[in-house]
């Protein structure tokens, strides 16, 4: 008898084709967008974390050490925050993953509304991030207090 394939795990593959990606839902529904840079001579990393509700924090950490406490920053304008998350959600599927660190590495980490993981790390000479990701990064930088 032919086995039923209604519960086949491979069906997830078909779903993945439709949605572009799939990952298990996280325990918390809150998502955030982490960006920043690190490495260089000192190996320090500065991570900014932006939440949809406008909260923005900064954390500076030494190489491989435990995270330093996050410092709250002045919340950026809500419209700009929403625009950044829309930009995140609109990243093309071929612009979601990149791992080309350089002496100084820039990064974007997050998750689209559909649950697609986003991890971009760039900085290696001659290996720029996709245009859409760089545009998002620039807009995120513009949110930082001056």
């Amino acid at each position: 008898m032919r086995p039923s394939h209604s519960n086949h795990a491979l069906l997830s593959l078909a779903v993945a084709l439709l949605l572009g990606c799939q990952r298990p839902p996280t325990a918390s529904s809150a998502r955030s967008l982490r960006f920043g840079s690190g490495g260089g001579f000192a190996g320090l990393q500065t991570t900014y974390e932006l939440y949809p509700d406008g909260r923005l924090t900064r954390r500076t950490s030494t190489p491989a050490a435990a995270d330093a406490p996050a410092t709250p920053l002045p919340p950026p304008p809500a419209a700009q925050v929403r625009a950044c998350f829309r930009q995140l959600d609109a990243l093309p599927t071929d612009s979601l993953q990149l791992d080309q660190p350089g002496n100084l590495t820039y990064f974007l980490d997050g998750q689209t509304r559909r649950g697609c993981p986003v991890h971009l790390a760039w900085g290696a000479p001659g290996a720029p991030a996709p245009h859409a990701a760089r545009a998002l990064y620039r807009n995120l930088q513009a949110l930082l207090p001056r």
């Binding site: 795990a9 993945a16 084709l17 572009g20 071929d94």
Partner: peptide, 23 residues
């Protein structure tokens, strides 16, 4: 496309040509 039969998860890997410059 790669499927982990044990977990039921699937991912899509984008192919590229690594260059001698590391890009």
């Amino acid at each position: 496309y790669v499927v982990n039969l044990a977990s039921g998860q699937a991912v899509r890997y984008m192919l590229y040509n690594p260059t001698s410059a590391g890009t």
